[in-house]
Design a protein around this nucleic acid. Structure first.
Length: 109
DNA sequence: TCCGTGACTTTAT
DNA sequence: CATAAAGCCACGG
């Protein structure tokens, strides 16, 4: 849960990530759980940098997120983020560092 | 304990 | 490429 928030805060300006990716990085639950966590504890983190796999922002906050994304220089086209260009690709080390715990590291040391 | 809901994803038509 | 259905995980009633 906190790992999710930590990762979202770690997303650099101009880049975005998806619910599924966050769930995979945390290594627990699923995309829906990430969304649920965001809905409840999303306040205080750049939630607009977390979008759906389609590249479309969270349901109900599309306009809000889109405005912020464009303002930060995120490549947006036709109401959808260009995932191929804006998707965040952190290394396992970075992820574990932000999580504060190497739970995603396979056979981590 | 069972059913329904939800800031989702993926596969098939 | 767009729409529809099924799957999945956690939480509340």
């Amino acid at each position: 849960m906190e790992g999710v928030l930590a990762l979202v805060e770690a997303v650099p300006v101009g880049s975005v990530t998806t619910y599924g990716d966050v769930a995979a990085m945390v290594g627990a639950g699923g995309p829906r759980q990430v969304g649920t966590v965001m809905a409840r504890h999303g306040s205080g983190v750049p939630w607009w940098r977390v979008v759906r796999a389609d590249g479309r922002p969270a349901q109900g906050l599309v306009e809000e997120a889109l405005s912020r994304l464009e303002a930060e220089g995120v490549p947006v086209a036709d109401g959808r983020v260009r995932m191929v260009q804006a998707r965040w690709h952190p290394s396992a080390a970075e992820v574990s560092e932000h999580l504060g715990r190497a739970e995603v590291l396979p056979g981590g040391r």
